Computed example of a mutant assay.
Amino acid sequence: MPSWKLTNPVTIFVAGFLLGALAVFLGIGGGPPNVAALSLLFSLGAKEGAVYSLAIFLSKLSKLMLSATCGALWAVDLTVVPFIVIPAIADGFIGTHSNRKLSEEGVRKIYVFVMALLPLISLYNCVANVLAL
Score class of each variant (00 low, 15 high):
G71I: 06
W74N: 02
V35Y: 02
I12R: 00
R100C: 07
A36F: 12
K47I: 03
I110T: 10
E48M: 00
M65I: 15
V24D: 05
V130N: 13
V107S: 01
K109F: 11
L58V: 13
L41M: 01
K101M: 06
T69W: 13
G95M: 09
T79P: 00
L44N: 00
V35I: 13
H97V: 12
S3Y: 15
A75F: 11
L18W: 14
G30Y: 12
V81S: 09
L6R: 05
I12Q: 00
G20W: 11
A116D: 07
G95Q: 07
F25D: 04
A50S: 08
G31N: 06
L117I: 01
L118H: 07
C126L: 14
S103A: 02
I86Q: 01
A132L: 08
T96C: 02
V130I: 15
Y52I: 06
G92F: 12
A50L: 04
G16Y: 08
L117K: 11
L117H: 10
T79A: 03
S67Q: 15
L64I: 14
V130F: 14
P32K: 13
G16H: 09
L131A: 12
F13I: 02
P2M: 07
A90E: 03
S103C: 09
F17D: 07
T7F: 04
L120A: 09
S59Y: 15
F13V: 02
P9T: 00
V130T: 14
A37K: 06
S103G: 02
L54I: 13
L22N: 08
P33F: 08
S3L: 03
F83Y: 15
R100E: 11
I56E: 01
L133N: 13
G45Y: 06
G16S: 01
A37E: 05
I12Y: 03
W74S: 04
F17G: 07
L38V: 10
G95F: 11
G31A: 04
C70Q: 15
S53K: 10
N34L: 15
A88D: 05
L44V: 05
G95N: 03
N129S: 09
Y111W: 14
S98F: 15
L123C: 05
L6W: 03
G31Y: 11
W4D: 00
H97C: 04
A132V: 06
A68E: 07
R108H: 11
L41N: 04
E105T: 13
V10R: 01
P82I: 09
H97N: 11
N8G: 06
A68G: 00
V85I: 13
K63L: 15
G71P: 08
I28H: 10
V35L: 03
F93V: 14
A90F: 14
G20R: 08
F13P: 07
S67G: 11
Y124M: 00
I12F: 04
S67P: 05
G20S: 05
V51D: 10
S53L: 03
L22D: 05
F13M: 04
K60N: 13
L19D: 09
V10I: 10
L41F: 12
S53Q: 07
D77K: 10
F83E: 01
P33M: 09
G20C: 07
L102W: 14
